[in-house]
C-alpha cells in the first residue's frame, strides 16, 4: 500500500519562498490563503541570534484530526494517505480548521477578492476560477498536488521521481530541500532519508502521525 509523504531538509531551505509561489501558481490559490508557508522565527539573543526557517504545509496525517471531526465526511483520507476536502459535501462548520494542530486549513470566504483590488480579475484569476472552482465558505488546504500525482500515475510516471508526477513545491525548490515519495516503500528516497537522517514529523505529541518529516543535519 502506498502512503505519499514528504521529507524536508531544514538545513538546505534558504527561505526563498519559491515553494509558496509555485504552490500558489499551481492551484490558483485565492488571495490571503496559503497552502504552503515558511514560518520564520528567531532564537537566542544578540549577537548569537539564530534564524529558523520552517516550511509548513498540510501534513496529510494518518490519524488526521480534521478527518475525525468533520461531521459530513467531506474531509477524507484516501488509501494513498492524501487528505482531501470534498467541496460538495462540506457544510463549512469550520471544525476541521479549529481542530488542525498545525493550522493548515483556511476558510475561503470571499470569491470576489481580487489580487489587485479595484482592477478586476486578471486572466490568470479567471482561468483559476474555471480550473479550481473553490466553494466559498469551505476550507482549503494543500493536497500534495493530487492532480499531478494522479495524472502522473495514469501516464505511467512515478511520483517523487518524475517531475510531472511530483508536487510543484518539490520540483520548484532551488535548494533541493524537499523530497517526495512513498513512505511505505523502504527503498524510496523518502524512507531512506527518514532512516538515515533520523527525520521526525512536526510535533509528534499531537498523535496525528503526519506524513511530512523534517531533518536538519
Amino acid at each position: 500500500m502506498t502512503r505519499w509523504g514528504m521529507v524536508i531538509d531544514l538545513h538546505r531551505c534558504i527561505g526563498c519562498y519559491s515553494c509558496m509561489l509555485a504552490c500558489r501558481q499551481e492551484h490558483f490559490v485565492p488571495r490571503g490563503i496559503y497552502f504552503n508557508r515558511i514560518l520564520i522565527s528567531e532564537k537566542g539573543t544578540f549577537p548569537t541570534i539564530q534564524k529558523l526557517l520552517l516550511p509548513v504545509l498540510c501534513n496529510q496525517c494518518k490519524e488526521a484530526a480534521c478527518v475525525k471531526v468533520c461531521p459530513t465526511g467531506a474531509s477524507s483520507r484516501r488509501e494513498d494517505g492524501i487528505v482531501l476536502i470534498d467541496k460538495d459535501k462540506c457544510v463549512g462548520c469550520g471544525y476541521c480548521i479549529v481542530a488542525c494542530p498545525y493550522q493548515q486549513r483556511t476558510r475561503f470566504e470571499d470569491p470576489k477578492l481580487e489580487y489587485f483590488p479595484g482592477q478586476g480579475f486578471t486572466p490568470y484569476e479567471e482561468l483559476g476560477k474555471k480550473l479550481f472552482p473553490y466553494q466559498p465558505g469551505t476550507p482549503l488546504k494543500c493536497t500534495f498536488c493530487v492532480e499531478r500525482v494522479d495524472e502522473g500515475i495514469k501516464n505511467g510516471l512515478k511520483p517523487g521521481v518524475d517531475r510531472e508526477a511530483t508536487p510543484a513545491c518539490v520540483i520548484t525548490c532551488p535548494a533541493n530541500a524537499r523530497t517526495f515519495g512513498d513512505l511505505e516503500d523502504p527503498h524510496s528516497e523518502v524512507s531512506e532519508l527518514i532512516a538515515k537522517k533520523k527525520a521526525l514529523p512536526l510535533h509528534p505529541e499531537f498523535d496525528t502521525e503526519p506524513s511530512v518529516y523534517y531533518f536538519r543535519v
Binding site: 459530513t72 457544510v91 463549512g92 462548520c93
Partner: peptide, 19 residues
C-alpha cells in the same frame, strides 16, 4: 455555516465527530 443548505449532511459522521 459556510454552506447552510447542506446542514442535513451533518448526521453523517456520529462515529467520530461531536458536531
Amino acid at each position: 455555516l459556510g454552506q447552510p443548505m447542506l446542514f442535513w449532511r451533518m448526521v453523517s459522521k456520529p462515529q467520530t465527530s461531536w458536531i
